[in-house]
Design a protein around this nucleic acid. Structure first.
Length: 991
DNA sequence: ACCGCCGGGTGCC
DNA sequence: ACCGCCGGGTGCC
């Protein structure tokens, strides 16, 4: 018995069965002599296992049943083994049939007919989730007993109990109800499932307890496996820090590990899973990988590069000279169909590019040049989303040259499929006739696929978000010695070569989540998915935390021997985030959501100690996490210089104060009315608008945008006016820097849309609400009716006119600008070499600051979200440059740049205006307070006295507290969310 | 005997 | 299944 890589039919079925998708079964399957529920009585829920509601489940009770028909199926179980129940509506003998499967998904038997008749309806409508354990009698030949636990939402309890009663079943709540004396139930001994009876389940651990418990998961660095250090392969030119050597040792030990995976142990000649009690004869493979969850800035990228080169092949490091006799490439060379002799001059270089042959560009002879070359290409092509792919191959492999040349020629025909066909013709040892090639691509593609999937590639696939693609290329260039020869391919851009043969012969293939997902979604087989990779590394691995996202599915379908996840935040919102990661790591039995949910997620969220223990040992065995404050042998992992935050209070000038007060008084009156009418949230955008104006005045009165009137709609607008107004409001919300969360997912807004009641949500989130509440969906924030057709998306910005208008205005200073300039000039006098970041949420404010900077002779550069990728790279490189005459100031918009942005040349930060979300500020500070920072970092926050800004600081504090206790607690619901928002508004406008 | 009892055939859903 | 159930054979003590 072995673990199939994918249990197709069953697994798919479990994932996809939904109420109503099999049009005929519900009607036929329930005995008609019982009054049937009409479908409108029950809200058809989302896929039970995929819905958030799974956390609200309570235990209804337990029942003893029977598994029958054992002798017809191969699936076997042990005493106390967990089993899963699966509806089988297409069973020709009984539409109510319910299969009983073991942990491996092999069928053990069926539920007895009468029991199935009672449960089928409940299961189909997801009114209850039934979980089974075989308490004893596992070796019976014909039938065996089954203990079932019933879980569901409280509001469905009655329906469930009624339905069972109609069929003559009654749930019990104690072990006696299972026909056991308590004595018997304890005989079973070790590690059986524990049924905490309802009383205990209801008791939740406090948020505080859970948080401390969870922190413990990562604290423990005492284990030897994680404190050993290892030197990287010679090919790595950068010395590793101690914690990076530890990570290297740990990662390599995991890749080469022969230990059993967590929760497995050997008993005699069988292997037992101690959680589920499942056993197999064949030794379960360990996970050759894990999660590197170090904090941002600890050098995960460098560590990963070190792993690739140090555990390059057969547990051996990459040899600098690739032509040594044990060269791993040898096996490929042997298969070369034919060779060309006249290319030896390139061989010495080890690397060459397709363009060098076809486009006349110089041959690139080592990786640093390659890096330069690539970086320039990537950065210059990114802005237009028209990037190039560069192929790096050993020119001694003649097959590739021909492939490339032909592929190049074929580009005229613009059909990638034909490229690949040609490539196949040249690389396959079996001749491919022209006729065959001209036949529809499919059959040839099929042949191609087969020839590729046969053996494992030695390539490492790295998948990262686009924002860090160039960072990876940079780091490869920086850290790998120049004489090292590597086959490196950036699989990106419209001209990427979709040839599995070519890809699988690389050492490293770098691509992005988007490319991977796009390829996966297109009809042709994705070349990335037809290769058995030596290693797959997911950078920013939390990108796959949504199990329903196409991106996640594309990642989970990759085949690899070693699998790594790099992430600074393994758990972002809740435990659920871990599942996708575990699933990617192919950790059995958690790949199936049901087992993950039963054995870990639910026990932990209901506060079950055993569950937490299991989670703990699981995490410990597969993740390594160090924070910036972690210590090794008493020394901090990173000896970062200190970071100090000062708040500098600024007083408004008389004129500014006058304007501020008048806007405030006007706004306060309006909002006060909203409060008395109880319509604050309905006017949320207006409230934000007022706050925005106040914040703008604090910075500079020229920021005041006249375009937005607070009065909102008068009720008799034309649809077009309404639309414009709503879009204006949404823009306001999005551009106000308020970092609004979506009230549904509580994450920052992705693909925002605005409802007619002027509330902004993520489009997917609100669509899901509308779907599940139809036909009368209501806005989660104000309970007004909403409709899918009425959602407005944000059209692309037509920005220019606004700023032009402003630039025509005569420049004046402001109190804050004065304060800033004073500080900058003082700093320059003290030390002209210190570099500073000047940060604001308002890009127009940054523009206003440019004028006095120029006037005072400062060299500065700028980075904001509106800039193209190319300009960003230029700006960053320019700023990071330490040569004399380089800019000393960067004007930075708060949210510009991804997590990887490195601005450590700066040691001063001037935060011109406070952010709503303190995390956004911290992230911004970390762009210079990170690895590579040699000086003390001093942060100055300018806060206007007696203003909305001071109130924002208060809100920041409550948010900090909230974030600190966030793990394990239930998400606030729409109501709590509402109240929190109202309270925030109260604080902000002093009401 | 329109029963009881016997013993063989048989067996999930 | 060392059961239950079915249906045929059988029939005082």
């Amino acid at each position: 018995m072995s673990w199939p890589s994918k249990r197709d039919p069953d697994w798919k079925y479990l994932q996809s069965v939904q109420y109503g998708t099999h049009g005929n079964f519900p009607r036929l399957s329930y005995p008609t002599f019982f009054p049937r529920f009409e479908s409108q009585d029950i809200i058809p829920p989302d896929d039970f296992l995929n819905s958030d509601e799974e956390l609200d489940c309570v235990l209804f009770g337990i029942l003893r049943g029977q598994v029958v028909g054992l002798r017809y199926y191969t699936g076997v179980v042990n005493n106390n083994e967990m089993v899963s129940l699966q509806r089988e509506p297409d069973n020709p003998y009984d539409k109510n049939a319910i299969k009983v499967n073991n942990v491996n998904g092999d069928q053990v038997g069926h539920l007895k007919r009468n029991l199935a008749a009672a449960l089928a309806f409940l299961m189909d409508n997801k009114l209850v989730q039934v979980e089974g354990v075989v308490p004893f009698g596992a070796n019976n030949a014909f039938t065996m007993p089954l203990h079932m636990t019933f879980w569901g939402k409280e509001e469905n309890r009655e329906v469930v109990l009624d339905q069972l009663k109609k069929h003559g079943f009654k749930l019990g709540s104690t072990l006696k109800d299972l026909g056991l004396s308590s004595e018997n139930s304890l005989v079973s001994g070790r590690s059986g499932p524990r049924y905490n009876m309802p009383a205990h389940v209801a008791v939740q651990m406090t948020a505080e307890q859970l948080k401390t418990e969870f922190d413990k998961l990562f604290e423990d660095l005492k284990e030897d496996a994680k404190t050993n250090e290892m030197e990287p392969a010679e090919a790595i030119g950068t010395p590793l820090l101690p914690h990076q050597k530890q990570a290297l040792a740990w990662m390599i030990s995991r890749e080469n590990s022969k230990e059993l995976p967590p929760f497995w142990e050997q008993r005699n000649d069988l292997y037992y899973n101690t959680i589920t009690n499942f056993s197999v004869k064949q030794r379960p493979e360990n996970v050759h990988g894990g999660i590197l969850a170090d904090d941002m800035g600890l050098g995960k990228t460098l560590t990963a590069i070190a792993v690739i080169l140090t555990n390059f092949a057969d547990g051996q490091p990459l040899l600098s000279n690739r032509r040594e006799k044990n060269h791993p490439r040898k096996e490929y060379k042997d298969k070369t169909v034919k060779r060309r002799g006249n290319n030896t001059n390139n061989e010495a270089d080890g690397l060459s590019t397709e363009t060098s042959r076809c486009g006349g560009e110089p041959v690139i002879s080592h990786i640093q040049e390659m890096n330069k070359f690539l970086t320039s290409k990537v950065s210059s092509f990114c802005p237009k989303r028209r990037k190039i792919s560069v192929e790096y191959t050993e020119s001694s492999d003649s097959e590739k040259i021909e492939t490339s040349e032909l592929a190049q020629k074929m580009k005229g025909s613009s059909k990638v499929k034909e490229d690949t066909t040609f490539a196949h013709a040249l690389t396959s040892s079996a001749p491919v006739t022209k006729k065959k090639m001209l036949k529809k691509g499919a059959s040839v593609m099929e042949g191609l696929k087969k020839c590729d999937t046969g053996e494992r590639s030695r390539a490492t696939l790295i998948i990262c978000p686009l924002s860090v693609l160039s960072n990876w290329i940079d780091q490869f260039g920086q850290h790998i010695k120049s004489e090292v020869h590597l086959n490196f391919y950036v699989y990106y851009g419209p001209d990427r070569i979709r040839d599995p043969n070519l890809l699988s012969k690389q050492d490293i293939v770098l691509t992005t989540y988007n490319v991977l997902t796009h390829d996966y979604g297109t009809k042709d087989d994705s070349p990335l998915h037809s290769i058995k990779w030596l290693r797959v590394i997911l950078d920013e691995g939390h990108a796959i935390r949504n199990p329903n996202a196409q991106q996640t599915k594309a990642v989970l379908d990759l085949e690899a021997e070693r699998r790594w996840v790099l992430t600074g935040t393994p758990i972002q919102n809740s435990l659920k985030d871990l599942w996708s990661l575990l699933s990617f790591l192919k950790l059995k039995p958690f790949i199936d959501r049901e087992w993950w949910h039963r054995t870990i997620q639910r026990p932990v969220t209901t506060g079950d100690e055993g569950g937490l223990r299991r989670l703990q040992s699981l995490i410990k065995s597969i993740t390594l996490r160090r924070t910036k404050t972690s210590k090794i042998k008493g020394k901090p992992v990173l000896e970062l210089p200190e970071r100090k935050v000062f708040i500098q209070h600024v007083s408004l000038s008389e004129e500014e104060r006058k304007i501020y007060q008048s806007v405030k008084n006007e706004g306060k009156a309006i909002i006060g009315r909203y409060f008395t009418d109880g319509t604050v949230l309905a006017h949320y955008a207006d409230v934000l608008g007022l706050l925005l104006r106040l914040r703008q005045i604090c910075c500079h009165i020229h920021l005041l945008t006249n375009g937005i009137s607070s009065s909102g709609s008068s009720g008799n607008d034309t649809p077009e006016e309404l639309r414009k107004m709503l879009i204006r409001k949404m823009r306001l919300i999005l551009s106000s820097g308020s970092d609004e969360e979506c009230a549904i997912c509580l994450d920052s807004l992705t693909f925002p849309v605005i409802t007619h009641c002027a509330h902004v949500f993520c489009k997917p989130c609100i669509c899901q609400v509308i779907q599940s509440e139809q036909p009368h969906a209501k806005c989660p924030l104000c309970r007004n009716n909403i409709h899918g057709d009425n959602l407005l998306e944000c059209p692309p910005e037509e920005s220019a006119c606004d700023s032009e208008e402003r630039s025509n205005m005569e420049w004046t200073s402001s109190s804050k600008i004065n304060a800033l300039m004073h500080a900058l000039i003082e700093l320059r006098t003290k030390n002209p070499n210190i570099k500073s970041l000047v940060v604001s949420q308002f890009t127009t404010f940054l523009s206003l600051i440019e004028t006095p900077l120029k006037a005072s002779g400062f060299m500065f550069t700028r980075l904001d979200g509106s800039m193209t990728q190319k300009k960003r790279v230029e700006s960053i490189q320019c700023f990071q440059n330490t040569e004399a005459g380089s800019p000393t100031i960067m004007l930075l918009s708060l949210k510009a740049g991804g997590v990887g942005l490195n601005l450590c040349a700066a040691s001063r930060v001037f935060l011109m205006d406070p952010a709503w979300n303190p995390a956004a500020e911290d992230q911004c500070f970390d762009r210079c307070h990170r690895l590579g920072q040699k000086q003390e970092v001093i942060i100055t926050k300018f806060i206007v006295k007696d203003s909305v800004e001071e109130n924002m600081l208060k809100i920041q504090n409550t948010k900090r507290e909230l974030a600190a206790g966030a793990f394990g607690t239930k998400k606030p619901d729409a109501n709590e969310m509402k109240q929190a928002k109202i309270n925030e508004i109260r604080t902000l406008v002093d009401l």
